[in-house]
Design a protein around this nucleic acid. Structure first.
Lengths: 127, 127
DNA sequence: CCATTATATCGCCATATTGGAATATGTCAA
DNA sequence: TTGACATATTCCAATATGGCGATATAATGG
């Protein structure tokens, strides 16, 4: 199935323009649609649509004020993404350590280098 | 423009199956494609495609070993996402505080409640 | 060399997404 | 009311996506 209706935060933030819009709302204050339009290279309808997606994903909440609608960032939903990525933090810190350690070994005591069994030379590869 | 080729981590992790696959690789060890296939409700070609997308996004690296290809998670790329969401942490902690504070006010000193001007009743709204 | 195993690719289909223009809807102000 | 303003919605075309079956490619064990 192609990506289904953007009901989750992950899908919602996949769109670059939407991340920009989130950036605009990042001050936590409510912003009118026109406000956002002025800061993005998109027409009003497109912005409205993106805001709609963000709203369906629970990433923003709306509030009417006269003839405009004020959108406000709902950061808790971003926390979900934050938390998911956090579960891998262990890995990236480890990898950094390993890189640093290897650099040290190669730089300071090149002969001690023993090819730890869990480090099979990694690296990109042509398709 | 429709979402362009999944060249960035955000797009890559938008797909639920891909997040599952990432989960499979979460132990940091190299996994053969067949390994992944066995753990996901998808045929091999689909898994290969997803792994391809993940690779194009730099989220995994491949390494040949005989007739199989070992994929390994490249967690630093997830760190990018982590960092982006972090820039909003300020907001969600604030909002939690505000909720807690409001609860306190309403629970302990219901009469003191003064509708702080930056709290215009928020909430969902019918389209 | 052959059959088998592991993986990638291709062709294809159904569906989704994005953005724009045009238009509808709602609200204010006089 | 009426007209201007703010935003949403609808319709449309272009493109991307995800999945499948079939097939190509590559390495392995005989």
């Amino acid at each position: 199935m192609p990506r289904m209706a953007a009901t989750d935060a992950f899908t919602a933030i996949a769109e670059p323009h939407r991340r920009v819009i989130i950036g605009v709302l990042a001050d936590g204050a409510p912003h009118a649609v026109g406000d956002v339009v002025r800061r993005v290279r998109l027409r009003q309808p497109a912005v409205s649509k993106h805001l709609g997606v963000l709203r369906d994903a629970g990433l923003v909440s709306v509030q009417r004020q006269g003839r405009r609608r004020l959108y406000r960032l709902n950061a808790e939903r971003l926390k979900a993404v934050h938390d998911w990525t956090s579960t891998f933090a262990r890995l990236w810190t480890h990898q950094l350590e390993r890189i640093k350690k290897r650099a040290e070994r190669e730089g300071l005591e090149p002969f001690v280098r023993q090819p730890a069994k869990d480090e099979p030379d990694n690296g990109e590869e042509k398709r």
